[in-house]
Protein backbone atom coordinates (compact mmCIF):
# COMPACT_ATOMS: atom_id res chain seq x y z
CA UNK A 1 0.00 0.00 0.00
CA UNK A 2 1.30 3.47 -0.85
CA UNK A 3 0.02 6.98 -0.22
CA UNK A 4 -1.40 7.35 -3.73
CA UNK A 5 -3.42 4.17 -3.53
CA UNK A 6 -4.58 5.03 0.00
CA UNK A 7 -5.81 8.47 -1.06
CA UNK A 8 -7.22 6.95 -4.23
CA UNK A 9 -9.37 4.54 -2.25
CA UNK A 10 -10.35 7.29 0.21
CA UNK A 11 -11.35 9.52 -2.70
CA UNK A 12 -13.43 6.69 -4.12
CA UNK A 13 -15.14 6.14 -0.76
CA UNK A 14 -15.73 9.90 -0.51
CA UNK A 15 -17.36 9.95 -3.95
CA UNK A 16 -19.72 7.11 -3.01
CA UNK A 17 -20.54 8.82 0.32
CA UNK A 18 -21.11 12.25 -1.31
CA UNK A 19 -23.54 10.81 -3.83
CA UNK A 20 -25.42 8.80 -1.20
CA UNK A 21 -25.68 11.86 1.06
CA UNK A 22 -26.84 14.08 -1.82
CA UNK A 23 -29.63 11.67 -2.77
CA UNK A 24 -30.60 10.90 0.83
CA UNK A 25 -30.55 14.54 2.10
CA UNK A 26 -32.24 16.12 -0.90
CA UNK A 27 -34.47 13.02 -1.30
CA UNK A 28 -33.85 13.47 -5.00
CA UNK A 29 -31.62 11.95 -7.65
CA UNK A 30 -32.06 14.83 -10.09
CA UNK A 31 -28.91 15.29 -12.17
CA UNK A 32 -27.68 11.79 -11.32
CA UNK A 33 -27.33 9.15 -14.02
CA UNK A 34 -28.90 5.91 -12.83
CA UNK A 35 -27.17 4.07 -15.68
CA UNK A 36 -23.72 5.11 -14.48
CA UNK A 37 -24.57 3.88 -10.98
CA UNK A 38 -25.83 0.58 -12.39
CA UNK A 39 -22.61 0.18 -14.40
CA UNK A 40 -20.53 0.87 -11.28
CA UNK A 41 -22.53 -1.74 -9.33
CA UNK A 42 -21.87 -4.26 -12.14
CA UNK A 43 -18.16 -3.34 -12.02
CA UNK A 44 -17.92 -4.00 -8.28
CA UNK A 45 -19.87 -7.27 -8.41
CA UNK A 46 -17.88 -8.70 -11.34
CA UNK A 47 -14.57 -7.50 -9.89
CA UNK A 48 -15.14 -8.77 -6.35
CA UNK A 49 -16.86 -12.00 -7.32
CA UNK A 50 -14.35 -13.84 -5.12
CA UNK A 51 -16.29 -12.54 -2.09
CA UNK A 52 -19.24 -14.69 -3.15
CA UNK A 53 -17.23 -17.73 -4.20
CA UNK A 54 -15.67 -18.53 -0.86
CA UNK A 55 -16.18 -17.18 2.64
CA UNK A 56 -13.79 -14.39 3.46
CA UNK A 57 -12.66 -13.45 6.96
CA UNK A 58 -14.00 -9.95 7.48
CA UNK A 59 -11.08 -8.79 9.59
CA UNK A 60 -9.24 -8.10 6.33
CA UNK A 61 -9.81 -4.39 5.55
CA UNK A 62 -9.66 -5.04 1.81
CA UNK A 63 -12.57 -7.48 2.03
CA UNK A 64 -14.53 -4.97 4.13
CA UNK A 65 -13.85 -2.26 1.54
CA UNK A 66 -15.09 -4.55 -1.23
CA UNK A 67 -18.29 -5.26 0.70
CA UNK A 68 -18.77 -1.52 1.34
CA UNK A 69 -18.34 -0.73 -2.36
CA UNK A 70 -20.81 -3.42 -3.44
CA UNK A 71 -23.46 -2.65 -0.82
CA UNK A 72 -23.17 1.15 -1.20
CA UNK A 73 -23.47 1.01 -4.99
CA UNK A 74 -26.42 -1.39 -4.86
CA UNK A 75 -28.10 0.82 -2.24
CA UNK A 76 -27.51 3.88 -4.44
CA UNK A 77 -29.21 2.09 -7.34
CA UNK A 78 -32.10 1.17 -5.03
CA UNK A 79 -32.51 4.86 -4.08
CA UNK A 80 -32.45 5.97 -7.71
CA UNK A 81 -34.67 3.30 -9.28
CA UNK A 82 -37.04 2.59 -6.43
CA UNK A 83 -37.18 4.92 -3.45
CA UNK A 84 -36.73 8.23 -5.29
CA UNK A 85 -37.76 6.94 -8.70
CA UNK A 86 -40.10 9.92 -9.16
CA UNK A 87 -37.10 12.27 -9.21
CA UNK A 88 -35.06 10.14 -11.62
CA UNK A 89 -34.37 12.12 -14.81
CA UNK A 90 -34.86 9.21 -17.22
CA UNK A 91 -35.34 11.42 -20.28
CA UNK A 92 -31.86 12.92 -20.03
CA UNK A 93 -30.23 9.69 -18.81
CA UNK A 94 -30.53 8.39 -22.34
CA UNK A 95 -27.06 7.08 -23.29
CA UNK A 96 -27.42 3.43 -24.36
CA UNK A 97 -25.58 1.45 -21.64
CA UNK A 98 -25.48 -1.57 -23.98
CA UNK A 99 -23.06 0.38 -26.19
CA UNK A 100 -20.67 0.33 -23.23
CA UNK A 101 -21.33 -3.13 -21.80
CA UNK A 102 -21.10 -5.17 -25.02
CA UNK A 103 -17.75 -3.74 -26.24
CA UNK A 104 -16.28 -4.08 -22.72
CA UNK A 105 -17.38 -7.73 -22.58
CA UNK A 106 -16.10 -8.41 -26.10
CA UNK A 107 -12.76 -6.73 -25.46
CA UNK A 108 -12.43 -8.64 -22.15
CA UNK A 109 -12.68 -11.89 -24.09
CA UNK A 110 -10.09 -10.73 -26.62
CA UNK A 111 -7.54 -8.90 -24.50
CA UNK A 112 -6.94 -10.43 -21.07
CA UNK A 113 -4.16 -11.81 -18.89
CA UNK A 114 -5.60 -15.34 -18.75
CA UNK A 115 -8.63 -16.85 -20.43
CA UNK A 116 -10.51 -18.07 -17.40
CA UNK A 117 -13.88 -17.00 -15.98
CA UNK A 118 -12.65 -14.99 -12.97
CA UNK A 119 -9.96 -13.22 -14.98
CA UNK A 120 -12.38 -12.41 -17.83
CA UNK A 121 -14.88 -10.98 -15.30
CA UNK A 122 -12.13 -8.91 -13.69
CA UNK A 123 -10.99 -7.61 -17.11
CA UNK A 124 -14.60 -6.85 -18.09
CA UNK A 125 -14.99 -4.91 -14.83
CA UNK A 126 -11.84 -2.89 -15.53
CA UNK A 127 -12.89 -2.02 -19.11
CA UNK A 128 -16.45 -1.21 -18.03
CA UNK A 129 -15.28 1.05 -15.20
CA UNK A 130 -13.23 3.06 -17.70
CA UNK A 131 -16.39 4.12 -19.57
CA UNK A 132 -19.01 3.82 -16.81
CA UNK A 133 -19.01 7.57 -16.14
CA UNK A 134 -20.03 8.41 -19.73
CA UNK A 135 -23.81 8.28 -19.12
CA UNK A 136 -23.33 10.72 -16.21
CA UNK A 137 -21.24 13.12 -18.32
CA UNK A 138 -23.75 12.70 -21.15
CA UNK A 139 -26.63 13.59 -18.80
CA UNK A 140 -24.84 16.75 -17.64
CA UNK A 141 -24.25 17.77 -21.26
CA UNK A 142 -27.95 17.21 -21.98
CA UNK A 143 -29.25 19.14 -18.95
CA UNK A 144 -26.54 21.77 -19.49
CA UNK A 145 -25.64 22.03 -15.82
CA UNK A 146 -24.47 20.10 -12.78
CA UNK A 147 -25.42 20.71 -9.14
CA UNK A 148 -22.40 21.73 -7.08
CA UNK A 149 -22.68 18.60 -4.92
CA UNK A 150 -22.76 16.44 -8.05
CA UNK A 151 -19.63 18.25 -9.26
CA UNK A 152 -17.88 17.34 -6.01
CA UNK A 153 -18.99 13.73 -6.50
CA UNK A 154 -17.53 13.72 -10.02
CA UNK A 155 -14.30 15.35 -8.85
CA UNK A 156 -13.80 12.69 -6.15
CA UNK A 157 -14.76 9.91 -8.56
CA UNK A 158 -12.32 11.18 -11.22
CA UNK A 159 -9.53 11.81 -8.71
CA UNK A 160 -9.66 8.21 -7.43
CA UNK A 161 -8.41 6.71 -10.69
CA UNK A 162 -6.04 9.64 -11.32
CA UNK A 163 -4.42 8.84 -7.95
CA UNK A 164 -4.29 5.17 -8.95
CA UNK A 165 -2.18 6.19 -11.96
CA UNK A 166 0.33 7.73 -9.54
CA UNK A 167 0.10 4.50 -7.52
CA UNK A 168 0.95 2.46 -10.63
CA UNK A 169 3.94 4.73 -11.40
CA UNK A 170 5.09 4.28 -7.79
CA UNK A 171 4.67 0.49 -7.93
CA UNK A 172 6.43 0.26 -11.29
CA UNK A 173 9.36 2.19 -9.93
CA UNK A 174 9.68 0.61 -6.46
CA UNK A 175 8.05 -2.82 -6.88
CA UNK A 176 8.45 -3.29 -10.66
CA UNK A 177 4.78 -4.24 -10.57
CA UNK A 178 2.87 -3.63 -13.82
CA UNK A 179 -0.76 -4.43 -14.54
CA UNK A 180 -0.99 -3.18 -18.13
CA UNK A 181 -4.73 -3.74 -18.58
CA UNK A 182 -5.59 -1.77 -15.42
CA UNK A 183 -3.13 1.00 -16.34
CA UNK A 184 -4.37 1.50 -19.92
CA UNK A 185 -8.02 1.44 -18.82
CA UNK A 186 -7.24 3.75 -15.90
CA UNK A 187 -5.57 6.28 -18.20
CA UNK A 188 -8.54 6.21 -20.60
CA UNK A 189 -10.91 6.61 -17.63
CA UNK A 190 -9.02 9.62 -16.29
CA UNK A 191 -8.78 11.27 -19.72
CA UNK A 192 -12.59 11.18 -19.94
CA UNK A 193 -12.69 13.46 -16.87
CA UNK A 194 -10.23 16.05 -18.22
CA UNK A 195 -12.94 18.31 -19.62
CA UNK A 196 -14.86 18.12 -16.34
CA UNK A 197 -11.71 18.64 -14.26
CA UNK A 198 -11.04 21.85 -16.23
CA UNK A 199 -14.57 23.11 -15.57
CA UNK A 200 -14.40 22.07 -11.91
CA UNK A 201 -11.08 23.83 -11.28
CA UNK A 202 -12.04 27.01 -13.14
CA UNK A 203 -15.65 27.24 -11.95
CA UNK A 204 -16.69 25.24 -8.90
CA UNK A 205 -13.57 26.12 -6.91
CA UNK A 206 -14.54 29.80 -7.37
CA UNK A 207 -18.03 29.06 -6.09
CA UNK A 208 -19.69 29.15 -9.49
CA UNK A 209 -21.93 26.43 -10.85
CA UNK A 210 -20.97 24.35 -13.88
CA UNK A 211 -23.17 25.39 -16.80
CA UNK A 212 -22.62 23.93 -20.28
CA UNK A 213 -21.71 24.86 -22.92
CA UNK A 214 -18.93 26.49 -20.93
Amino acid sequence: MNIFRLFGDLSHLAAIAILLLKIWKTRSCAGVSGKTQLLFAVCFITRYIDLFLHFVSLYNTEKVMKLIYISASVFTCYLIFFKFKATYDGNHDSMRAEFLIVPAAGLACLINTKFDAIEILWTFSIYLEAVAILPQLFLISKTGEAETITSHYLFAQGSYRALYILNWIYRYHYESHVDTIAIVAGVVQTILYCDFFYLYITKVVKGQKIVLPA
Partner: peptide, 10 residues
Protein backbone atom coordinates in the same frame (compact mmCIF):
# COMPACT_ATOMS: atom_id res chain seq x y z
CA UNK B 1 0.74 -22.30 -9.52
CA UNK B 2 2.41 -19.61 -7.51
CA UNK B 3 3.05 -17.45 -10.59
CA UNK B 4 -0.75 -16.95 -10.56
CA UNK B 5 -1.19 -13.27 -11.35
CA UNK B 6 -3.04 -11.78 -8.38
CA UNK B 7 -4.86 -8.51 -8.80
CA UNK B 8 -4.12 -7.07 -5.40
CA UNK B 9 -5.86 -3.72 -5.86
CA UNK B 10 -9.48 -2.70 -5.34
Amino acid sequence: NDHEFKHDEL
